[in-house]
Amino acid sequence: MSALLAVRGLAKSVPGLRQLFAGLDLAVGAGELVAIVGESGVGKSTLLNIIAGLDEADAGEVRIAGDLLGPLDEAARTRLRRERIGFVFQAFHILPYLTLRQNVGLPVALVSPDPVAANARAEAMLARVGLGDRGDGYARDLSGGELQRVAIARALVHRPALILADEPTGNLDPDTAARVLALFADAVREGGAAAVIVTHSEATAAVADRVLTLTPHGLVETHG
Rank of each mutant, 00 (worst) to 15 (best):
L126R: 11
K44Q: 01
L147G: 07
A139H: 08
A165K: 00
N119T: 09
A178G: 07
V111D: 07
A182Q: 10
L80H: 09
A161S: 12
D73L: 04
A6S: 13
H217E: 15
F87G: 01
R154P: 05
A187M: 12
T215L: 08
L26K: 05
S45T: 15
V88I: 15
G224L: 02
Q102Y: 14
G192Y: 06
P113K: 04
G43C: 02
N119D: 15
R149F: 05
D55K: 02
S201G: 07
S143N: 01
E32H: 04
E32N: 10
R128E: 07
P71D: 07
R189N: 12
A208S: 01
P113I: 09
K12G: 01
F87Q: 08
A120V: 08
E61I: 13
D173W: 11
L54H: 02
G130R: 06
R159G: 08
G43Q: 05
R101C: 05
T215H: 09
L10G: 04
V104G: 05
L10N: 04
R179I: 09
H200E: 08
P113Y: 08
P115A: 14
L147V: 12
G41A: 10
A178L: 08
Q19N: 02
A109W: 01
V220Q: 04
L172V: 08
T46G: 06
A124T: 14
L54F: 13
R81H: 01
A139D: 11
R134M: 05
A76S: 04
R77A: 02
D58I: 03
A182N: 03
A161N: 10
E39S: 14
G66I: 05
T169R: 05
L69Q: 00
R18E: 00
D209N: 13
N49Q: 11
A6I: 02
A151H: 09
N119R: 13
A3I: 13
A208L: 03
H200A: 12
L33E: 10
T78F: 00
A75D: 07
R82F: 01
G31V: 10
